[in-house]
């Protein structure tokens, strides 16, 4: 049994071949996702003022909200509310419904037209930055293959999009729920599409939830208002710093920094450990957590500039 290579065995299970890439970043899905994600402001920088160069492998304490909102069709230029021909919905004998949308403001008209063609749909238009209070109903988990197509360009037109829905694949009690909102400046729209079953509550607009700001466990301890205010540890050795911290009764742990080649400013976290490191190791900054534990950012090697700040601390933090 010794000659079993477990890793090869695991390889045989890979849906996407080991080492192979999955999706194409230039594909429609990838571009749509990128557009949705970056349409919102990212969280305010956690590290301000001069920390921009400080890139850390902050590990995994990810705080994430649910994937916001959702789905876009191709960007859609708007040409005023409720213009005639803002949408077109057609149905073929085999139950295939084609929807072309050029303007999203006439949500009610679109909804009505869809219902006429036997597409159970609810369409809401929302100002940017608002969402419908959820949950409005029960989401269908098992969406039949081919129920709807990708939104795509309307042939021969630059604006708007079209998509197809196979109404024969609807099950009784299911409803298409669209929420459409304009992006700032009115230069585009995004659409979220849900398939729900059972009753669907009316849209109650509420402000879109602000993404949670990720707060790292440790923060700089030597700046104003923190536990080591006024104490300088940067560019000293562990042997020079530890006695004072011990005198103050601090519990100390060590973050072993990983410095990229050439020490361009910035570092990775190799590990954090309680075991002491050598007295001759270099200290570049001290951090604290909520429990008052001090974490020294250290390297075994001595560098000619502080990796935390990409240069002298004084150039970044003025007291």
């Amino acid at each position: 049994m010794k000659n079993i290579d477990e890793i090869d065995a695991v390889k045989s299970l890979a849906r996407v071949a080991p080492g192979a890439q999955g999706g194409d970043p230039t594909g429609a899905g990838a571009r749509a996702l990128l557009a949705v994600i970056t349409s919102e402001e990212p969280a305010a920088p956690v590290r301000t003022r001069g920390y921009a160069a400080r890139r850390r492998a902050l590990g995994l304490a990810a705080s994430f909200a649910l994937a916001a909102g959702v789905v876009v069709g191709p960007s859609l230029l708007e040409d005023g509310p409720g213009v005639p021909g803002s949408y077109a919905v057609t149905r073929t004998a085999d139950g295939m419904v084609t929807i072309q949308v050029r303007d999203f403001h006439d949500a009610l008209g679109l909804e009505k037209r869809l219902k006429e063609l036997n597409v159970p749909a609810i369409v809401d238009h929302l100002p940017y930055g608002q969402v419908c209070r959820g949950p409005r109903g029960k989401h269908v988990e098992d969406i039949p293959q081919g129920l709807y197509s990708l939104p795509e360009n309307i042939p021969g037109e630059k604006e708007g999009w079209q998509m197809q829905i196979n109404t024969r694949l609807f099950r009784p009690g299911q409803t298409f729920v669209w929420t459409i909102s304009s992006t700032p400046g009115g230069h585009g729209s995004s659409t979220s599409t849900y398939l729900m079953e059972g009753p669907v509550a009316p849209c109650e607009p509420v402000p879109a939830p602000k993404p949670k700001v990720y707060t790292p466990e440790f923060r700089t301890a030597t700046v104003e208002g923190r536990s080591l205010e006024g104490m300088r540890v940067d560019e000293k050795t562990v042997g020079e710093v530890l006695p004072e911290l011990r005198r103050r009764g601090k519990k100390v742990v060590f973050l072993i920094m990983a410095i990229p080649p050439g020490n361009p400013g910035g570092f990775g976290e190799e590990r954090t450990q309680e075991e002491p490191v050598g007295d001759d190791w270099s200290v570049w900054e001290a951090e604290e957590n909520a429990k008052g534990v001090i974490r020294l950012l250290v390297t075994e090697e001595r560098y000619d500039r502080n990796p935390v700040y990409g240069g002298p601390r004084d150039a970044v933090i003025s007291e």
């Binding site: 849906r15 999706g23 916001a68 876009v72 989401h139």
Partner: peptide, 17 residues
């Protein structure tokens, strides 16, 4: 969890399956 669908992305991922 609230399930959001991004149709193009679904389709691309479905290709991998």
């Amino acid at each position: 969890r609230r399930r959001a669908r991004m149709v193009e992305l679904d389709a691309e991922l479905a290709d991998l399956y």
